[in-house]
Design a binder for these strands. Structure first.
Lengths: 255, 255
DNA sequence: ACACAGGTTCCATAAGATGGAACTCTTTCC
DNA sequence: GGAAAGAGTTCCATCTTATGGAACCTGTGT
C-alpha cells in the first residue's frame, strides 16, 4: 500500500473524497472516521480543506456530499464522454469477443442515452444508436436500467413497437424480475423485428447501477440459442470496468 | 493566505484539482506549475497522489483531465440534481424579483434538459417544464446554449411550432448573433403562442457556458416592453451563481 | 549525436501534519 | 428540566512528513 512517499495527507484526503463520491449518498463525519480509521482531528481538518476547495459540501444535517466541482463537471456537455473513454477498452474487448455491436448507456432523466458504441465486425450489424432515442421498455439496456433502479419506471401504457414489445407495466415488471434474477436483460424482436440484444449493468462501489452495456445484432446471430453465454460474458467483462469505477476489487458477494 | 493551518498539502492538491476541473480541457504539467507557482517536484508528487486516487487522469499526451471519480459522479442519475441545489438560492432570488417562473437547464447530448424550476407567483404561470422535451430552437434556453457553444447546432429543417418559430438555420443563426451581442436570449410566441421567455448563460471559470437560466410567463407580462430589464436582471443575478462555480470570493456568509 | 524541454527522483532540512485531550454545542434520555 | 451521551472542532507539544533545489531521466527535434 504505502508504495508512495511524500503525500500522506493528500492520499488520506483523497481517500475521504473517494468514499464520499463512491457511496453516492451523504456520509456523516463519524462514518468516515470509522471507515478510514483516522483520528477525528485529522479527519476534521482534511474535510475542512476539501470543503474549502469545493470538493465536498455539507448538507443541512452536516453530512458530506460531492461538492460544486463535481456538479460543475457533471454539467459539462462532454462529462459523459469521459466515462465513455474510461469504458472504451472494456467495450472493445467485448466487441472483439462477440464480434457484435456494443453500446454503453446511462440514464438521464427519463431516457436512456447511448454514450459510446463499438461497431460490429459483420457487415450486417446494428446501426449507430448514439444519440438516437429509443423506448426504454423495448431495449435490453432500458430493462437493465429499469430493473436496477437507475431509471424511473414508466407510467401509463407503453409504446408497442413490435408484436413482441411489452405492452403494459405488468408485463414489463415481470420481465424485470427475471432481469434481476439473472443479472442481465434480453430484448429479442422487441424494438425492431430481427434485432436482438443482451445488456448487463455497470455498478459503482455502493452497488448502484450507473450504466449498462449491451451487445446487439441480427437475431440470426443474437438469439435464444447463445443468449446465456452472451449474458454471462457481459457480466464477466464488466467486472473489470467496475474496478475502474471503484478500485476495491472485492469479489465478496453483494446482491 | 486563508486562515487555515494543518493542511497545506491538501490545499495545494485541491487547488491543482480545481484548476484541472474548472479549465474544462486537458492541462499540461507545466501550465499547472506556472499557474500555481509551486515547485516542479511538489507539483509532480501531488499530481501523482491525485492520479492514484482517480481524481485526475492523464491523456495520451500526458495532460491532466478530471479522473474516473468525476465520471462516476456525472453518470449518476442525480448528478445534476446537485447542481440544482447549488443554484436554488439564485433561482429563488430571481423568482422573488420577477415573480415569474424560473428554470435552470443544461445541454445533454442534442437536447436541453430542465433541471430545476421555481414557480411563478401568479396563478397564470408557465407549467412545469422539468423533464419535458422542447425544441431548443424555439426556446430562450435553447438559444443561449446554442449561441455559446454548449449545444451542437441543429442540422436540416427546424420544427415549426408557431408562426414565430425560426424555420431554418439562417434565421436561427441570425438570432444567435443577437444573443451573443446582448448576452441573453428571447423567445416570444415561438414555442407556444402567448408564452414569452428570456434566458441568460451560466459560465464556468474558463468562460464555457455550462447552463442557462430563464424567466418565462405569459406574453401579457413577459413581452418586448420590459424584456431588456429582465435580461439585464438575469445576467446580474447569475454573477453570484458563477462565483459558486468558480473561484472562492467569500470566506464566509452563505445565503 | 547533441541539446533542450518536460518531467521525475533524491535528499537534507525544517515546516507542517499528527493525534490525544480538552472543549463546545446539540440531542437524547430519564 | 437537568444530566449524560453524542458529534464535531480546536489546541498544542511532538516528530513524522512535505518541501524545493539539484541531479537525473527520457523523448523530440535538429
Amino acid at each position: 500500500m504505502p508504495a508512495s512517499v511524500g503525500s500522506q495527507a493528500v492520499d488520506r484526503a483523497s481517500a475521504l473524497l473517494a468514499l464520499v463520491v463512491e457511496s453516492g449518498r451523504p456520509r456523516t463525519f463519524t462514518s468516515l472516521v470509522e471507515e478510514l480509521g483516522l483520528a477525528k482531528s485529522t479527519t476534521s481538518r482534511l474535510l475542512q480543506a476539501l470543503e474549502r476547495s469545493r470538493l465536498v459540501q455539507r448538507d443541512q444535517r452536516g453530512a458530506f456530499r460531492p461538492g460544486a466541482l463535481f456538479s460543475l463537471h457533471a454539467a459539462r456537455p462532454n462529462a459523459l464522454h469521459d466515462l465513455a473513454e474510461l469504458a472504451r477498452p472494456t467495450l472493445e474487448r467485448i466487441g472483439a469477443l462477440t464480434e457484435e455491436t456494443v453500446n454503453l448507456s446511462v440514464a438521464r432523466g427519463n431516457d436512456v442515452v447511448q454514450i459510446a458504441q463499438i461497431d460490429s465486425r459483420y457487415l450486417l450489424g446494428s446501426t449507430n444508436w448514439v444519440g438516437v432515442e429509443t423506448p426504454a421498455h423495448c431495449t435490453a439496456l432500458g430493462k437493465v436500467l429499469y430493473a436496477f433502479g437507475a431509471l424511473p419506471l414508466p407510467r401509463g401504457n407503453l409504446e408497442r413497437r413490435t408484436a413482441h414489445s411489452p405492452v403494459d407495466r405488468a408485463q414489463l415488471d415481470h420481465a424485470l424480475v427475471e432481469v434481476r434474477r439473472r443479472g442481465w436483460a434480453v430484448s429479442l424482436d422487441e424494438l425492431e423485428v430481427g434485432l436482438g440484444a443482451v445488456a448487463a449493468p455497470v455498478r459503482a462501489v455502493d452497488g448502484a447501477v450507473v450504466a449498462a452495456i449491451s451487445v446487439s445484432g441480427p437475431t440470426a446471430r443474437v438469439n435464444d440459442h447463445g443468449i446465456t453465454t452472451l449474458g454471462d460474458l457481459l457480466v464477466a467483462e464488466i467486472r473489470g470496468l467496475a474496478a475502474l469505477l471503484g478500485h476495491h476489487t472485492t469479489p465478496e458477494g453483494v446482491a
